[in-house]
Measured scan of single mutants.
Amino acid sequence: HHHHHGSGALAALHAEGPLAGLPVTRSDARVLIFNEWEERKKSDPWLRLDMSDKAIFRRYPHLR
C-alpha cells in the first residue's frame, strides 16, 4: 500500500538477483529511509530522521 507524499519521489530498486528489492543508489536509499520514517513517525512522533551516509551503510551495506 504505497501512498505518495508531496515530493512523489520513487526509489529505484534492484529488480533481480541477490540485491532484489534493495535501493540502487544512496539517494534511492534516502527515499526509502524517509518514507519509512514518515510511516513510523505516526506511532512514534519523536523518531529522528537519520539519512546520513553512516545510517545508509548500516542499513544497506551493499551501497558502501
Rank of each mutant, 00 (worst) to 15 (best):
P45M: 09
D28C: 06
H3M: 07
H5A: 10
D44Y: 09
R58L: 12
G21N: 06
L22C: 07
G21Q: 05
D53Y: 09
L13T: 10
S27Q: 15
W37K: 00
K41S: 13
H14I: 10
K41N: 15
H2Q: 11
F57Q: 08
E38H: 13
P23Q: 04
R40G: 14
G21F: 06
S43N: 13
I56R: 00
E38T: 11
S43K: 06
A55I: 08
N35C: 09
P61S: 03
V24C: 07
G21D: 05
L19M: 08
S52I: 01
D53I: 11
G17P: 06
R30L: 08
Y60N: 00
R26E: 10
R58S: 12
E38W: 15
P23G: 00
D53H: 06
A15W: 11
L10T: 12
H5Q: 14
I33L: 13
L32C: 06
L10C: 08
K41V: 13
E39I: 11
P23K: 00
E16H: 10
A12P: 03
R58E: 15
G6W: 14
R26L: 14
L32Q: 06
H1E: 11
A15G: 12
W37E: 01
W46I: 10
G8V: 06
V31Q: 10
K54H: 09
E16T: 09
F57P: 00
A55D: 04
L19Q: 05
V24G: 02
D50Q: 04
T25M: 05
A29W: 00
H14S: 02
G17C: 04
R64F: 13
A11F: 07
H62K: 00
F34D: 01
E38V: 11
E16S: 10
V31E: 07
S52E: 02
K42V: 11
L10Y: 07
L22H: 04
L47Q: 06
A55V: 11
G6F: 11
R59A: 11
G17S: 03
G8E: 12
E39F: 11
A20Y: 11
G17E: 03
W46R: 12
N35K: 15
E36C: 04
R48C: 07
W37C: 01
H3S: 12
R59I: 10
L47W: 12
P23R: 00
L63S: 00
G17Q: 02
W37I: 02
D50W: 04
A29C: 01
L13G: 02
H2L: 09
L32P: 00
E39D: 11
H5M: 14
P18I: 08
H3L: 12
H2S: 08
A12D: 09
A20M: 09
K54S: 13
P23M: 01
H14T: 03
I56P: 00
R48I: 06
D44A: 09
H1I: 13
R40I: 07
H5E: 10
A55N: 12
A9R: 03
L47D: 06
D44W: 10
R40Q: 09
P45K: 05
S52N: 03
D44M: 12
D50G: 02
P45Q: 10
F34M: 13
W37T: 01
A9D: 13
V24R: 09
H4I: 13
I33M: 12
H5F: 14
A11N: 04
R58W: 11
S43A: 12
A12T: 12
L10D: 10
L19T: 04
S27G: 15
K54A: 11
H14L: 03
P61A: 03
S27V: 11
R26M: 15
N35S: 13
H62C: 01
G21M: 03
L13P: 03
S27N: 14
A55R: 05
H14G: 03
R59W: 03
I56E: 00
G21I: 03
N35H: 08
R48P: 15
A9G: 11
Y60G: 00
W46E: 11
S52Y: 01
L13F: 09
H3K: 10
D50V: 05
P18F: 03
D28T: 02
I33H: 01
E39R: 10
D44I: 05
R30A: 08
P61V: 03
D28S: 06
A15E: 14
P18E: 08
D28V: 05
R26C: 07
R59E: 07
H3G: 13
H2A: 06
A29H: 00
G17N: 05
M51L: 13
H2M: 13
A15Q: 14
Y60L: 01
F34C: 05
H2N: 12
I33V: 07
R30F: 06
Y60T: 00
Y60F: 11
R40W: 05
A15T: 11
E39Y: 08
I56K: 00
A29K: 01
H62T: 01
P18G: 06
L49P: 05
L49S: 02
W46N: 15
A15H: 12
Y60W: 13
R59F: 06
K41L: 10
A12M: 15
P61N: 02
E36P: 00
A29Y: 00
N35M: 13
A20R: 14
I33K: 01
I56D: 00
R59C: 05
E36L: 08
D53V: 10
A29E: 01
K41E: 04
V24Y: 04
D50T: 03
S7P: 09
S7Y: 14
E36N: 04
L47A: 13
R26H: 10
H14P: 02
I56G: 00
L49F: 06
L19A: 05
S52T: 07
H2K: 11
R26Y: 08
A11M: 07
H4E: 10
R64S: 12
G17Y: 03
H5K: 11
K42I: 08
M51W: 10
P23F: 00
G6C: 12
L49C: 08
G21L: 05
E16A: 05
H5S: 08
K42A: 07
M51I: 15
A15Y: 11
H62E: 01
F57A: 09
A12E: 13
H1D: 12
S52W: 01
A55H: 15
H3E: 07
L32H: 02
P45F: 04
H62L: 01
L49R: 02
H2T: 08
A15R: 12
H5N: 13
H14W: 14
D28G: 02
A15V: 13
E39W: 05
P45L: 06
H1R: 05
R58Y: 09
H4P: 12
H4L: 14
D28H: 04
R30G: 02
H5V: 09
Y60D: 00
R59P: 01
R26F: 14
R48T: 12
L19N: 10
R48N: 10
R59L: 11
V31Y: 10
N35E: 09
